[in-house]
Design a protein around this nucleic acid. Structure first.
Length: 283
DNA sequence: AACTGTCCCTGCAAGC
DNA sequence: TGCTTGCAGGGACAGT
């Protein structure tokens, strides 16, 4: 599932390959993907526009256009953005196809929004009035990578609430970008139980949590994200990530804990999500 | 305030 | 082996 590191990897691909390019025309094959407005709005909003930047807030991709509007893409569960040469054979579920004009450096390409489970969205909106179409952008919490997240801020966010740590990390209104995989990896590295109540953390535990957030997200971005068997996350050019090889708990039930070397990773449900942890070293 | 459950949708896997 | 059923998951939302 795309979380901050995967979305950031896609963003970097867009920055390298799509920013600066002109949209010739757009096809929308599935209305559900553009449900927040309409196929017409997305086609009209993108056609003839040039991408001027590729930004990210939490799991949201935002690309400002030279028309003054911007396109927001959320991959949700199974969304992918893929760049392919014009005319390439499309995979199933390519719900939006953006045709990019050839430029001095590049031949004509197509940008595909592929999404089997159709939870993902594409919206063209006015970035000076985000509340009109994408009000959730204004409610996002701090992005640990784009904004930075220092220890004092994290301490305030954690101690100011009485919530299970897993629920807190997953709450996009508190910290933006962490999902089910990275919350488990972060809590394991921080040696904190997912059901630990946030307001009970001690100073040293806050320090460990702070380090773990940055270590996990930084390493995951450097690894190009996590590609799992089912979700098949790949970057803009179709390359898999490799952070799954560095997962210490996620999808490793029954395995020996690589940190303490003594516990066994278990799978349970916390905050309504499948959760992996080492009951021995997470306290 | 924080929790649980529901919905959306599809592909995969477990179970018969 | 072949079918059916259930589950997973991000995020909004309703209800407790």
């Amino acid at each position: 599932m795309p979380e901050l590191p995967e979305v950031e990897t896609v963003r970097r691909g867009l920055q390298d390959r799509v920013v600066g390019r002109l949209v010739e025309h757009v096809e929308v094959g599935r209305d559900r993907t553009v449900r927040r407005t309409s196929a017409d709005e997305v086609v009209r909003g993108l056609t003839g526009a040039r991408f001027v930047a590729a930004e990210r807030r939490g799991k949201y991709l935002i690309c400002p256009l030279d028309t003054g509007r911007a396109v927001m893409v959320h991959l949700r569960m199974s969304g992918q953005l893929l760049l392919a040469p014009a005319g390439a054979r499309r995979p199933p579920h390519a719900h939006v196809v953006v045709h990019l004009a050839p430029s001095a450096e590049r031949a004509a390409d197509e940008l595909w929004f592929v999404d089997p489970r159709t939870f993902g969205e594409v919206v063209v909106f006015d970035p000076t009035r985000p509340d009109e179409l994408v009000p959730e952008l204004g409610r996002l919490g701090v992005d640990p990578v784009a904004d930075g997240l220092d220890r004092a801020t994290l301490r305030r966010l954690v101690l100011g609430r009485r919530r299970r740590m897993k629920a807190l990390l997953l709450d996009q209104h508190v910290i933006a970008g962490i999902g089910n995989i990275y919350s488990d990896e972060i809590l394991h590295r921080a040696r904190l139980r997912p059901d630990r109540i946030s307001s009970t953390l001690h100073g040293r535990e806050i320090t460990r949590l702070h380090s773990a957030v940055h270590e996990v997200l930084t390493l995951a971005i450097e690894s190009g994200g996590s590609t799992l068997r089912d979700a098949q996350y790949v970057d803009l050019l179709g390359a898999s990530g490799s952070f799954q090889d560095l997962h210490r708990v996620y999808d490793r039930a029954g395995q020996r804990c690589s940190s303490c070397q003594r516990g066994t990773i278990v799978r349970e449900s916390v905050a309504g999500r499948t959760t992996y942890l080492c009951p021995r070293c997470q306290r």
